[in-house]
Design a protein around this nucleic acid. Structure first.
Length: 418
RNA sequence: GCGAACGUAGCUCAGCGGUAGAGCUCUCGGUUGUGGUCCGAGCGGUCGUGGGUUCGAACCCCAUCGUUCGCCCCA
């Protein structure tokens, strides 16, 4: 029995739900392409180094969440996120000479985490990366693109944008030092988690959910006060750009990123409708990433969004397209029906051909697939060279000559998507 | 990795120590070729799995797997 269950944290995506996934993916791809972002697919597994070098040997993702395996002499890892692979692809393909580059991607990611609502071990993301643009205008565009995708999905009023600046490396280092100095004074009173964070990742103490930590956090030095002039100006330019586009953003001075390659802008679109997994689309600027991979300094900014989380927010799946059902009666009619079905399909109509059973059961089948019309062909009809076409909503049934069938049914053709 | 709750037919759930139930779904029928309503019949569960306690366990105990909620982390 155990072997007939999916692996923990994985799931089958059945057709109804797949339409929801497709809607998210298609919306994101469509909006991204309007901003000039072309789709890129990188492999689902990479050399482990690609992730361990960029994410940091001590990060949670690398130390305990990666699906890694060896094959021959290669140490390989199922990708836990999308950015590292895209950056690697840029270098592998010598694409730096074409900077700036704009990419959209989608696909599965893998993280060995405790599954929760909106969090799976295999999950799916859509994301974008803008490479080679050091100017704050890039940040504005990327955030506007994320905002655009969410609002096209109808989530405009369900999410809020929070934003912060981590500053350049100089500002960030200065702040980090201040923060460590500050929290060290209360070291013994911090939560166990935050004591660890003080060593590994002091910025993370800022968004601790521990009650005891929070009162120290309240008086902690603010990142904003540590920004140097250049970083301050950069952040202001981003905020002004967003304001000019009418995108409201809430500056959250405690919004941080754990990974070292992040700098300047960090942002998250969050919702309060998904419990603890409220972050729906998040990203930031990662100007340090390429160097950590051993490449030349390259500016970068991007975001990723969890498709599972988005599908939970956008609600009901679109109805499946309604086919035309064909109900043949008798061997002769079945042979004719096969051809008719095929002709109609070539004419861009959706057709459901009943495979067997009584007429009653085939009619039920037609109803079950929500057929918009049913074409009934028996010996009587065949003798007259007609088919009985039944409109399944009105119940009206009329004989239509086989020659005019396609033309008659054209009214049921689903409109092409705009 | 830590804490908690839950796990009975495809779905939603009842049963809470004495040999498995309901509603919905599904299949077939209600005479010769007509769906959605109605009526009838039927299929379907070793009660997540493995141990233990007991004369006897879906019901008690332990373990394990899974789901959900929170922490950690993150999309």
């Amino acid at each position: 029995m155990a072997t007939l269950s999916p692996v923990r944290g994985t799931q089958d995506i059945l057709p109804d739900e797949h339409r929801l996934y497709a809607r998210v993916e298609e919306t994101a791809r469509d909006v991204a392409s309007r901003y000039g972002y072309g789709e890129i697919s990188t492999p689902i597994f990479e050399f482990s180094d690609v992730f361990s070098r960029t994410l940091g040997e001590t990060s949670d993702i690398v130390t305990k969440e990666m699906y890694s395996f060896e094959k021959g002499d290669d140490r390989l890892t199922l990708r836990p996120e999308g950015t590292a692979g895209v950056a690697r692809a840029v270098m592998s393909n010598g694409l730096r000479q074409h900077l700036p580059l704009k990419f959209f991607y989608r696909g599965p990611m893998f993280r060995y985490e405790r599954p929760q609502k909106g969090r799976r071990r295999q999950f799916h993301q859509v994301g974008v990366e803008l490479l080679g643009v050091a100017e704050p205008l890039g940040d504005v565009e990327v955030i506007a693109l994320g905002h655009h995708v969410l609002s096209d999905l109808g989530l405009g009023d369900k999410v809020t944008l929070e934003i912060n600046s981590l500053g350049d490396s100089e500002s960030r280092q200065a702040y980090r030092d201040k923060l460590v100095a500050y929290f060290s004074r209360f070291k013994d009173e911090l939560s166990a988690d935050s004591k660890l964070r003080l060593e590994k990742n002091p910025l993370r103490i800022l968004d601790s959910k521990d009650e005891g930590d929070r009162k120290f956090v309240a008086d902690a030095p603010l990142l904003g006060d540590s920004l140097n002039d250049a970083s301050r100006t950069f952040f202001d330019t981003v905020l002004n750009g967003l304001a000019a586009l009418g995108i409201s953003a809430k500056v959250n001075p405690r919004l941080v990123r754990g990974l070292d390659y992040y700098s300047h802008t960090a942002f998250e679109f969050t919702t309060d409708m998904l419990g603890a997994q409220g972050t729906v689309l998040a990203g930031g600027r990662y100007d340090g990433l390429f160097e950590m991979m051993g490449g030349p300094a390259t500016a970068g900014i991007g975001w990723a969004a969890g498709i599972e989380r988005l599908t939970m927010l956008i609600g009901e799946a679109d109805a499946a397209p309604r086919p035309i059902a064909i109900v043949p009666l008798g061997a002769q009619a079945e042979a004719a029906a096969l051809k008719i079905a095929q002709n109609l399909r070539h004419a861009r109509l959706g057709v459901d051909l009943g495979y067997g059973g009584s007429m009653k059961s085939r009619m039920k089948r037609a109803d079950k697939v929500k057929a918009i019309a049913t074409v009934i062909i028996g010996d009587n009809e065949l003798a007259k060279g007609v088919a009985a076409v039944r409109d399944m909503d009105s119940g009206q049934q009329t004989d239509v000559s086989l020659a005019e069938l396609e033309q008659h049914l054209a009214r049921y053709r689903v409109e092409e998507k705009k």
